[in-house]
Design a protein around this nucleic acid. Structure first.
Lengths: 246, 246
DNA sequence: TCCAATCAGGTTGTCTGACAAGTCGAAAGC
DNA sequence: GCTTTCGACTTGTCAGACAACCTGATTGGA
């Protein structure tokens, strides 16, 4: 019922967000299939009890997400194939452990390949950039501050060394979703343990393999690092991943 | 009416897109650093010579992308680290040919890892699903029809065999943006040549490696298949990718 | 002097009404 | 029967107004 939805939306924090979320839900639920035409902005405004301006902002958001397309004079339609990938890793509390494992695994798949490619393609500028972020992490380790940002930058520098724009963007994308767990690994359970030091050792090994231009070793180091990172948040990645791939 | 037809072809520029692109460029160029406050909507509207509604839509888009954040009463600010969930490959028509190599390369990186994982995890149901799509491609090959859909399904079946939701979704996403070039490989330049047959041979080798549960061979087959696919559209992936990774 | 409450100006969020630009189907004319 | 024209409809844009909210400065008292 539209009325019940309306009641919830009245005087809610961000009207346009509520509307876009409601439309998104309809699409996800299959009520609006790809190719279907959305109700007109006028109808939507009346349905949700908001002005057309709010509806337009909600539509603009979905359009930016690639979920719908609009044609002036014709209407708005559910997009056939979204042009952007929306990994909704978790909403609300946190990810299930199974999902976390999948994510770490995907990350491992990609970053090992990235490390390998970086070892082939890196130029001196890439190496010095990596070195810089590695030093920053050393520093953070020494004074006990948060090195998760340098950690991020280090991995991005590796991705940058592939000289492949899309690989870089994918790593960047995945890294954003990992900022929480990465920060956890820095400031989390192992404050008194040697967890960050362990990670840093892995970082250094990975760095040296890439700097030395050894693709196979870079791959192995990246794999080991990702396994370590996973284990540091309580996930065993090596369960059925024997190391015959290196 | 020649002019009007031309106008039809060249999509009319949306004002809000121009504004958002301009703002995005400013951010990318560093004129607006993370944390900086954007000019007010009023100023932006005057600057670009558009109404505030257009500016708001442009801002809404950047907000949806996570590039900026707004606080009612305070202003709009460049996001510290974009935390968008969107991985947008390109906006508009499609990638430039120069970028195609990067994309094929990324695809190769991912699908080789996917094939390897699929070889470890596949269960009988996965194998029969792959077999089904392989047969469909054989059929399409025999009667000369379009097998690109079965081709898609085959690769998705492999991704599904990893039993990793996110890996599947990533392959699905990449595949969608590759439908054009894949169709090209089927119905394109090699109508009289043996290109589809060549691809099918690669498919079969890949299938058998996964079905046999041989991760290393699956990886090699996937890599060879992607290289073949790239070469079929005129891209040489093996330029600096020696095969010491298998 | 220091601190807290208050106030004023500015900024985003929303509403309303209007017109321009474009689409689509049906009626009108040949 | 076919093409053209027209009109209703939809999205895109504009303008002005008010509400909700934030921020910094002022003001008042301790």
């Amino acid at each position: 019922m539209g009325i019940n939805e309306l009641k919830k939306i009245v005087r809610a924090p961000r009207l346009s967000e509520e509307v876009s979320a409601a439309l998104e839900a309809r699409i996800a639920r299959g009520e609006l299939a790809p190719g279907d035409q959305l109700p007109t902005e006028k109808v939507l405004a009346e349905t949700f009890g908001v002005s057309r301006a709010v509806v337009r902002e909600a539509v603009a958001r979905l359009k930016a997400d690639g979920r719908i397309e609009t044609r002036q004079g014709a209407g708005a339609f559910v997009a056939q194939a979204p042009k952007s990938l929306n990994f909704r890793f978790w909403q609300g509390e946190g990810p299930a452990l199974v999902e976390l494992r999948d994510i770490f695994e995907l990350r491992s798949m990609i970053e090992t390949a990235v490390a390998e490619l970086a070892a082939r393609r890196r130029i001196p500028e890439d190496v010095s950039a990596m070195q810089k972020h590695l030093d920053a992490m050393d520093l953070a380790l020494a004074d006990g501050s948060d090195g998760s940002e340098a950690d991020d930058d280090f991995h991005l520098a590796i991705a940058s060394a592939t000289h492949n724009t899309y690989a870089y963007r994918l790593v960047e994308f995945l890294g954003r979703h990992f900022s929480d767990s990465r920060r956890l690994a820095w400031a989390g359970p192992g404050r008194d343990g040697a967890l960050p030091e362990e990670a840093q050792a892995e970082h250094r090994a990975l760095f040296e393999a890439i700097a030395a231009g050894n693709p196979a070793r870079a791959r192995r180091c990246a794999q080991q690092h990702l396994r370590g990172a996973a284990s540091r948040v309580g996930i065993d990645l090596a369960a059925d991943l024997t190391d015959d791939a290196g």
